[in-house]
Structures are given as structure tokens and as C-alpha cells.
Amino acid sequence: MPTDFDFDTRIDRRGTHCGKWDKMEAMFGVSPVDGIPMWVADMDFAAPPAVRAALQKAVDHGVFGYFGDDSDYRAAVANWMKTRHGWEIDTDWLSTTHGLVAGVSHCIRAFTDPGDGIILFTPVYHAFHKIIAANDRRIVQSPMTREDGRYRMDLVGLAASLDGSEKMVVFCSPHNPGGMVWSVEEIRALARFCEAHDLLLISDEVHHDLVLPGGPKHNVAMVAAPEQADRMVIMAAASKTFNLAGGMTGGVFIPNPELRAKFEAKRATAGASPNSLGMLMSTAAYAEGAEWLDALLVYLDGNRRLFHDAVQAIPGLASVWPDATYMAWVDFSGTGMGTQEFTDRVEKSARIAANHGPAFGIGGESFLRFNFALPRSMVKEASERLADAFGDLQ
């Protein structure tokens, strides 16, 4: 496989049933003709060559039936987790879901009842809020504090607020939207908290491969706190790592056999046959995508630095430095503007679509989330547009 990968070429995704581009105008009022999509978390880069080769082989075969033997997939996942994360898994732990949001939904239905409280450390990934509410559970927001530009969980404050109806924590590791990589000590403290309060810990680690150069090592929750592994569920996938979100293939790891049986019973209610093309893509990515990922991380680091420095140079704006992911979490509170005013400047003046901070819960009111997984020329253009849109503050 080649080692010289191209992340600079702009690939025209307009009119290709691409949510990121083709839904941008309806959702944000930003035209795909001259707008820059920096919202939904997929990358504007071609997938690894090995993935495209696997799909081409399937296309050439020409038959697209139900997926069968998944032993190659399970072996590739196990090898990836061991070599990339130092995590030895039993492949029996692994259940495949139609994406990880579906996996969270199955967990909610398997392990809690309507009206139960589910804890989120906010601000956090907006889809968690939606899927909890859609399942008629109660969202318990635990606002995080910020110290030296870094979010921290307030477990003391959370403990004081519990009323006994809370059954589960949905944890985001690395953190989305802030990009923090949680330390072993932080994860252990959370795991002990969950044990003390009889809570299940659902750890969404879908961005675990996207720790950028110079950042701390990602810590799998089960590796960091093995004593509490029986009350944990880990979620991971190739989707964010290799830009395969459309393959709708998520991995849910449950070592506790009783919890796994409950999960499988709920998963079966939605049909258990995986997306065959998603399985082929994920297998190829895990088996042969390491060099591509290493090159991607170097490229994303360049984009991160470019966008972060540009935002920091605009008076009133402040970007949280992300250790991981390809998202920038930008605070506009220093402008003195209300949410609608700074959002209008970004969307109408700069013609950039970014995720609205309030959707991430308490603590997101003055923020927007920007996806910088774009060709660098587009990140540079977006940076210049933001500077112009807020030029009167300089």
C-alpha cells in the first residue's frame, strides 16, 4: 500500500447524497455553492486505499446479500485494539450495531427503564441528549468545570445532586466537543464513582484513534479501571478513524455476560444483520489502514494548529486546544455578543456551517464546534473568513 496519501485535494461532495454538504443550506442557511461545512463529524478526505480496494472487489463480485461469517472482522478488531491501544479483548465481547448512536440506544433500553436518570457530563456530544430523550429517560446534566482551559468532571457536585433514580453514565472519551484525553486517574475516579452509586458506565470511545501528535495517550476505560470492568460497556468503531460513517458499523464491547445477554436481547428487536459493506470497509481499515491513519494524524495536527492560532488571534474568540478528535470548540463569550449574533456572523458573514453550542448542553451556550478535517486550503479560507466576520472587534 502507498505511504504518500493525499489530503490536500478538494473532493466535490455536493449532490452526492452527502449530509455534510447537501443538508447544510437547509440546516444553517449556508449555501454549498460558496459555504464551508465545518459541522457534522465526518472528514472531507478519501478513505484509505485498502478500504476502497475492498469495496471495489465487492462491486466487481456484483452480489450484495446478507453478511455472514464475521471472523475476519473480529480478528482485525482484536488485533487493532491490542496493537494500537494495549487492550486485550475477547471477541465474544463484541456486538455489531448499526452505528454507535444505535448502540447507545440499545444500552438505554437494555439497562434502564422509562423515567430513569442518565448522567451526561456537559457540554457533550449532542446526539446523546437526543437519544436519551427519545427513549423517555431523564437527562441528568452534570456541568463540568474548566481549569487552565481544560474540562474536569465535578464528581463531588454530582454526588450531592443524585436522587437515586440515576442508573447510567454515558461518558465521552476522548471528549467531544472539547477534545480532551482523560487521564487514567480521572477514569478511575469516575469508575469508582459509578461503583459507589450503582451506575453503569457506557464509555463512547469512537474518537480513540484520533489523538493528535503531542497529545497524551488514550486510555481505554476497561484498561484504566479493570476492577470495575463488569459494570462497563465500551463503544468503538472504525467510522471516525477512517471516515467510514456511512458504513453504519459500530462495535459494542461488553465483558459481563449478564449485561451482554440483556444488550443482545434489545439489539435483536431492531434486527441483528450488519451492513455488509460497512463490515468489509471496517475489516480492511483495521487490517491495513495503520499507515494511512498515521499520515492523517500528522495532517490534522497541521490543520489544528492553523485554525487554533487563527481563532486565538481574533479578539473575543478563544479556541479550546484539542488533544484529540478533529473538532475545535470555540468560545465567543469574549465578544460580548449573544448566541444569535455571533452565530449569524459565522453563518451569514463568514458563510461557515458549525454546530451550535447549546445543543451540547449546559456550558455550550457561548460556543460553536468547528470540524477542521478538511483540505488545508479550506481551513485557511475559513480562518480568513472568521477574521473578516469579526474584523470590527480588532
Results as ranks from 00 to 15, higher is better:
Glu147Cys: 13
Asp163Leu: 00
Leu296His: 08
Ile119Ser: 09
Ala387Ser: 14
Arg84Tyr: 10
Pro49Tyr: 07
Tyr326Met: 05
Met279Cys: 10
Ala318Lys: 14
Val379Cys: 15
Leu317Phe: 12
Arg376Tyr: 06
Met24Ile: 12
Ala350Asn: 06
Arg385Trp: 06
Tyr286Lys: 08
Glu205His: 15
Ala46Pro: 02
Ile131Leu: 00
Lys23Ser: 15
Val170Thr: 07
Val33Asp: 14
Phe7Pro: 06
Gly363Asn: 11
Gly214Leu: 01
Asp323Tyr: 14
Val223Arg: 13
Asp136Glu: 15
His175Ile: 00
Met168Trp: 04
Arg138His: 10
Asp301Gln: 08
Glu205Asp: 15
Ile132Arg: 12
Arg260Leu: 02
Leu155Asp: 02
Ala285Asn: 09
His126Pro: 00
Leu297Gly: 07
Ala78Val: 12
Thr9Gly: 04
Ser333Pro: 07
Ala324Ile: 08
Gly62Lys: 11
Ala318Ile: 07
Pro226Asn: 08
Ala189Ser: 12
Ala353Gln: 09
Ser173Tyr: 01
Phe242Asp: 04
Pro174Asp: 06
Asp6Asn: 13
Glu258Pro: 01
Asp309Arg: 06
Thr91Asp: 14
Ala191Ser: 15
Gly86Glu: 13
Leu280Asp: 04
Ala318Ser: 14
Ala359Phe: 08
Glu258Thr: 14
Gly62Ala: 12
Asn219Pro: 10
Gly336Pro: 02
Pro274Asn: 09
Gly316Arg: 05
Gly115Leu: 10
Ala328Trp: 02
Asp388Pro: 00
Pro255Phe: 05
Asp154Thr: 00
Leu158Thr: 00
Ala290Asn: 09
Gln228Leu: 01
Phe242Ser: 02
Asp309Lys: 13
Trp80Pro: 06
Ala238Trp: 01
Thr241Ser: 15
Cys18Arg: 04
Gly364Ile: 00
Ala295Cys: 08
Ala110Ser: 11
Val63Ala: 13
Val170Pro: 03
Ala389Val: 04
Ser165Lys: 09
Lys130Thr: 11
Leu277Ser: 04
Arg150Met: 12
Asp116Trp: 06
Gly363Pro: 03
Leu55Ala: 09
His85Asn: 10
Asp34Met: 11
Gly179Ile: 03
Asn176Tyr: 14
Thr335Val: 05
Pro174Lys: 05
Asn371Leu: 07
Gly99Val: 11
Arg146Pro: 00
Ile36Ser: 11
Arg109Asp: 07
Lys130Tyr: 11
Gln141Asp: 11
Leu300Tyr: 02
Lys240Glu: 14
Ile314Phe: 10
Ile131Tyr: 02
Gly361Pro: 03
Ala75Asn: 11
Gly391Asp: 10
His308Tyr: 12
Val181His: 07
Gly86Cys: 15
Thr145Lys: 05
